[in-house]
Amino acid sequence: MSRSNALSPQASQSKPSTNKNKWWYWVALFLCSGVLVAAMEYVHAPAAFLLGPMIAAIALVVSNHPMSLPAIPFRLAQVMVGLMMASHLPISTFADISAQWPAFIFGTLMTMVASGLVGVVLTKSKLLPGTTAIWGTSPGAAGVMTIMSEHYKADMRLVAVMQYTRVAFCALAAMLTAGLLVDSEVLQNIPHQWSVISWSSFWMTLITALVCLALASRFSVPGGFLLIPMFTGFCLQSLGWLTLDLPESLLVVAFAIMGWGIGFRFSPDVLRHALRVFPYILLSIGFLLLMNALVAWILTLWIDIDFLSAFLGTSPGGADSVAIIAASIPVDTSFVMTMQVSRFLLVMIAGPLLAQWLSRSFMEKSD
């Protein structure tokens, strides 16, 4: 197996592990996930159904219990999260962006500037080989950055560790911040829709999900399994053609699969390879989170938004994991979703170009 195939995000999900996913691995995964979810729910931690399975998956794979997810369940889980994001985007979203566009641009660009600064500093320090730091610190679009990095003298293994460690730590930081700023009684009293409200709307939602899954599989759009259902659901709801019915009994399954999908991307071999520079990786993530908090504080002074909403909106983690956390706590979900999607789109367009430009600059200097 080639190095790129062995390390690509797609391969980590769809290829069978060397131990062929022994059935007791899955039993252990379900039990560990259940215990962690129950413990986090007991203390009213946000996004327990995402973070519990994610921590359980990381613990298993780094203790030499390699596991993998089939591609279809993970993709379908992304589609369901995309539809959930659409259900939280009001029709006034574009009007809100146009009214506050300087704040949206500021929040998005500051996240990218902070990430680029960390990447340049780490690259100049030569703590990481080649242009690894530039690709590893790029915010969002983790899979795309990981795959493209190999063509620019970067160590794909370290890029993968940096990208998915950032996603995991940003999710944990968002959960802890929400736990500190939101009263536990408020979290306990958040209403939950566990059952289907309208069976006709529910079946139409599932059909929409399957159509979006097929479209995203057919067209290789980066982030398509999240973006296509989100924009499709938003447009259909805005036109009055669809009412999204997503009971939490369905969403928690999608959240758990998302958590496992993130956790399975880690491995003992990759972590051992990264152990020497792991403190610097954690330090860079810590700097990004501090910048995240600073930008969020500036936004609270600039526009009418609370700190937690601003913090989640400018989080350099994955848009899908942030969306799941935002949906489980009392924040301005439309602001969070819009800010995350704006940054995700900008990263998809400008991120690879910026990383390529920086990579070429350092490659030319090294030559």
Rank of each mutant, 00 (worst) to 15 (best):
N21V: 00
W302I: 02
P247S: 07
M148G: 05
L236T: 13
P247M: 04
V221L: 11
L353Q: 05
A45Y: 03
L51K: 10
L109M: 15
M84N: 15
M162A: 10
S115M: 10
P46W: 03
G34Q: 09
A160C: 07
T338N: 03
L128T: 09
V182F: 00
M339C: 10
L353A: 11
V113H: 07
L353D: 00
L89A: 03
F202G: 04
K20P: 05
T137P: 05
K15C: 09
G136P: 07
G119R: 02
L122A: 15
V35C: 04
L206P: 03
A310M: 04
R276M: 12
Y164L: 02
W199C: 05
S149W: 13
S12L: 12
V159L: 12
S125H: 12
F335H: 04
G313V: 03
T146V: 08
F94V: 11
F106K: 02
F335A: 00
W241A: 14
G263R: 05
V35N: 02
M54S: 08
S309V: 02
H273D: 14
S17V: 13
G119C: 01
G179T: 09
L288N: 13
G286K: 12
M85Q: 05
S87E: 06
F264A: 15
L158C: 06
I285A: 10
G313N: 06
R360F: 07
S125E: 15
T137A: 14
L289W: 08
C212M: 05
A160Y: 02
L246F: 01
Y25S: 11
H192S: 10
S184C: 03
I349P: 06
G179Y: 14
Y164T: 02
P102H: 12
I105H: 05
P9A: 06
T93E: 14
S220E: 15
A38E: 08
T146C: 05
